[in-house]
């Protein structure tokens, strides 16, 4: 690494400590000697994102997980009409809410369509816009077919034509990678910034968001099917098994993220965020559901588990976004991160 600055600075005037000699007025123990930065003014600026963005992360994650589960069920030959129906309508609603939330958050909402001027693969925000357009259209088509099947469009020629014309299986297989991209990109969106806590965790950010998206989606499906008393017995069993497994994957990824973040992950345990992250996500969204899932299954218990996982996932997203704000506002965190091997550098390839 080209580290000429550091060398120049360390060697200057022959003093190892940046050329600052000890004086009677400023002894080596004077804490001000090592204070870095400029009156504590944050050297980078935090994102302005308010509640809309973490809420979108949550909804986008659920959409991704729902698509994953319903497509797999379809491909693996597990036909459950109620499941398919819930899945398709959910994706549509999620794909209506997501753009609303995102456009709401813009400084100039009336110019949202400028997102469609270009497509930049290196900009997660651009990728997000385009993947939402694609997934939105696919889920719209699937929902139209579902509506036709359900007779919501009337039992007429048009409905039959739509059922004929919309190839559900092909579309849902096509939609799967796009949906998974939407889910994981919510994490990439955070990690591709200069914010130490997010950038440090580039490798696990997207996987963790995706895993959390899948676990919340499975809980969501199980919650809705339970509440409506819909779905086959097998669907519930599979959901339960899958839930347990994905929560474990999610827990492992959160642990890996925390290890990777190291000292830059401190904001997650700060006074303001710890209740959300430790209480909401780690205990409420992971530990408690795992305990509940291992016992005997009852309907009420399943509903409680699902609600806990869903809230835990929401708390996780708020904690991550707000933690990033704290991280960006902490000069020490940024300077220590951007001073050496910690930050990604051009020479380290993935």
């Amino acid at each position: 690494m080209a580290d000429a600055t550091r060398e120049t600075l360390q060697n200057r005037n022959g003093h190892p400590d940046n050329g600052r000699p000890e004086t009677s007025h400023h002894t080596r123990t004077d804490p001000k000697r090592d204070e870095k930065g400029y009156y504590g003014v944050p050297p980078i600026k935090a994102a302005h994102w308010t509640w809309q963005i973490p809420l979108y992360f949550w909804i986008g994650g659920i959409a991704a997980g729902v698509q994953l589960f319903t497509t797999l069920a379809n491909v693996l030959g597990h036909e459950d009409e109620a499941l398919t129906r819930v899945g398709r309508y959910t994706s549509l609603v999620a794909m209506i809410l997501s753009p609303i939330l995102l456009i709401w958050d813009l400084g100039r909402p009336e110019r949202f369509y400028n997102m469609m001027r270009v497509w930049k693969l290196r900009s997660p925000m651009s990728n997000q816009s385009w993947s939402l357009v694609m997934y939105g259209n696919l889920s719209g088509l699937l929902a139209v077919r579902q509506a036709a099947e359900d007779g919501l469009l009337g039992r007429n020629f048009l409905s039959r034509l739509l059922i004929q014309l919309i190839p559900a299986k092909v579309l849902s297989i096509l939609a799967l990678p796009v949906a998974l991209f939407v889910g994981s990109n919510t994490g990439t969106l955070l990690s591709a910034t200069s914010v130490p806590m997010w950038a440090r965790n580039w490798a696990f950010m997207a996987p963790t968001f995706l895993a959390s998206g899948v676990s919340t989606a499975l809980s969501y499906l199980s919650l809705v099917l339970h509440l409506g008393r819909w779905g086959e017995e097998k669907t519930h069993t599979v959901l339960r098994r899958a839930e347990r497994a994905t929560i474990l994957v999610e827990a492992a990824l959160i642990a890996a993220s925390l290890i990777r973040m190291g000292r830059w992950g401190k904001p997650l345990f700060s006074k303001e965020i710890a209740p959300l992250f430790v209480g909401g996500t780690l205990i409420g969204g992971i530990a408690a559901p795992l305990a509940l899932l291992s016992g005997k299954e009852t309907r009420n218990k399943s509903i409680l588990t699902s609600v806990l996982v869903l809230l835990g996932g929401l708390a996780f997203r708020f904690a991550m976004v707000h933690g990033g704000r704290q991280s960006a506002n902490d000069p020490e965190a940024y300077f220590s991160f951007a001073s050496g091997e910690n930050a990604p550098q051009p020479e380290d390839k993935v």
Partner: peptide, 19 residues
Amino acid sequence: ETYNLARHPFLPQAKVRGA
């Protein structure tokens, strides 16, 4: 850092492909 500048600013997008 005295001038509030990072010592080794990095390109955040360098890791998009990795992600």
